[in-house]
Amino acid sequence: MEFVQQLINGISLGSIYALIALGYTMVYGIVKLINFAHGDVFMVGAFIGFYSISVFHLNFFLALLISMVACAIFGVVIERIAYKPLRNATRIAALITAIGVSLLIEYGTIYIRGAQIEAYPGNVIPDVTIKFFGVEVSSQSLFILGVSVLLMVCLQFIVHKTKIGKAMRAVSHDMDAARLMGINVDNTISATFAIGSALAGAAGVIFGMYYTSIDPLMGIIPGLKAFVAAVLGGIGIIPGAMVGGLVLGVIEALVSALGYSLWRDGVAFIVLILILIFRPSGLFGKNVREKV
């Protein structure tokens, strides 16, 4: 039963990775850039949620919403200022810029508010232990899972059913052909950054609530792991990021359950190395050709 509990914890954690991984994969799908500043947008989201709850006494859902909107705007600002001028530059130039933006956000945050750790209020949503069939699950784990799944369903709806979603798929497949349809490519790319960043913001608030402590460098490790999750699923493929995140979360939980919790953080990178060796296009590469 211990095992099932760990599995459920793993799925909750994995759904947070998945939310972050979606931003990596969507941005990669459309501009072929690994946005290394994405983990820091997640961190900023966590702080915005924190201040909304602890300073402005808002409830969880309002805090989540505010964080998502603020991160969406933040993501677009980053794209317009840092990445858009480099759209025709080499990929390595854009990549180095992304690393620079990442450091700027991390140390900018430290400059503004200091490096001290902040504790998320613990009572944001009720934490009770639910028992069924002898398995004990925390209500928070289920809640995280529920919110993440809901956000992913919304994303699928946007990508497949709305005009902007169709524009995103078209641009990611063929930018010039999309232009010939009258699609505004710049706006579509910005929308992609906005949506990906909003999801990272949501992940930040959920993460803060679950793990309770946040700090300006908290985005680095989850950011890297979400990147691994995106590669695991097949970079550029939306369902791949979802599955990749969940698989990675479960693997980490199982490694802990087997008594190797010290290895937990290392496992993601072993996974990365293994995929790059055996299946560089990821689990969903090749057969599913859905890129955004």
Binding site: A170, H173, A177, M181, I183, R289
Partner: peptide
């Protein structure tokens, strides 16, 4: 365009919809 450049990952119907974007 030369070489068709259809949106391969979308359905025929979605391609036509994009034409009317």
């Amino acid at each position: 365009p030369e070489g068709r450049r259809v949106f391969a990952n979308m359905t025929v119907e979605e391609n036509l919809e994009l034409g009317a974007f």
